[in-house]
Write a protein that binds this DNA or RNA. Structure first.
Lengths: 190, 190
DNA sequence: CACAAAGTAGACAAATCGGTCTACAAAATA
DNA sequence: TATTTTGTAGACCGATTTGTCTACTTTGTG
């Protein structure tokens, strides 16, 4: 038998990503999942735990996608460029792995759950830390002094967050290319 | 008599900014505003129109704050730096004008209302256009060729959006200083 | 085969949602 | 002074919220 728990998580993620957490009710999720309410509550004893599950689900997909996008480049510079080219494909709905673009799930969820001590907010924070760590791995390979490593990593992260937000709010599908141009200019200075 | 309409808008904004639109009900707003439900619906015939009102209210405050932060600088470069120093004060809850930091209201609201054709989403977009226009005014004063003007403006906007998002999601209160450092590096290259 | 785990549909509960309405009071304005 | 606008409290509406529960069926495993 198919894994109902997985189906519920995937369906919930799709709906949450499109409409936001508070805008999607349990009844909509079970209807879309074609699952009984009891089944959902058997696997997830509350909506909050289901939200956490969707965050873990998306975290896995996103990090895998990112690693794959940056791998197999012949230099760390090209790997960073490849990240923004991948973001560009995402914004333009050409990423099969990430699906249609509704902004960054973690940013959007964190905006709905701002309390720093909540489990949901911490899952969002944790995801962003891992993304930063991945970027930092490549920046470390650049032939630059240690003082600059954190600076470059921070800037890449800021440009990344900035272009995701701009693509969402401004519906500006060129935001990733703008960010890549800024990155390239920056890398010339080091 | 005090202007009830204004009180309702201000109270609604405060609650929406803290908790998000979908997480705040009309009953909570009237209770906090100390106003009858009929009074609210007399001034705003739907919750959506009230949301629009809070967006206009915040738009006015934010643009005034931004203009004031960048004015009276002795050079356009200093004006751009001043913007990020002002953002830094905001993130660290030292801005009286903007109040406690709960992220950018327009980004957060746009994340909850993603449909590009909705009035709420368009109000968020419009605000961001005005902010960009303000930044562009200063970039125009830099002694650079026309090709670079849009590039610099785009990059400043990306860094600004990036640091606001980072300050919110990562609870990183130094994000504006990171963005300013990146800006300064960038300005050295032109 | 027996039994536990995982599934079904959907009624139900208590609270809350956005929004309407009555009936009346106060305040501003012509 | 007369009239209109703006205000009050809160009952009420139908829909929806998260979550519980009953009664029963299917499925996988020891």
């Amino acid at each position: 038998m198919v894994d109902k728990k997985q189906i519920i998580t995937q369906t919930a993620f799709k709906l949450f990503a499109q409409k936001g957490i508070h805008a999607v009710g349990i009844n909509e999720i079970i209807k879309e999942s074609k699952v009984a309410k009891k089944t959902l509550y058997h696997h997830f004893s509350s909506k909050e735990l289901l939200v956490i599950s969707t965050l873990e689900y998306r975290d896995d997909i996103f990090l895998t996608w990112m690693k794959q996008a940056m791998a197999k480049q012949t230099s760390p510079t090209l790997a960073l460029s490849a990240l923004f080219k991948a973001l560009d494909r995402w914004f333009n709905d050409k990423s099969v792995t990430l699906g249609a673009f509704y902004g960054c799930f973690f940013i959007n969820v964190a905006a709905e759950f701002k309390q720093q001590n909540s489990d949901i907010n911490q899952a969002c924070q944790q995801h962003k830390k891992q993304v930063r760590s991945l970027i930092n791995n490549y920046v470390n390979k650049l032939q630059i002094d240690n003082d600059n490593i954190d600076f470059i990593t921070d800037t890449v992260c800021l440009l990344k967050e900035g272009c995701i937000t701009t693509a969402l709010v401004q519906h500006d599908k060129s935001a990733a290319r703008q960010a890549e141009a800024a990155l390239n200019k920056l890398l010339l200075t080091i």
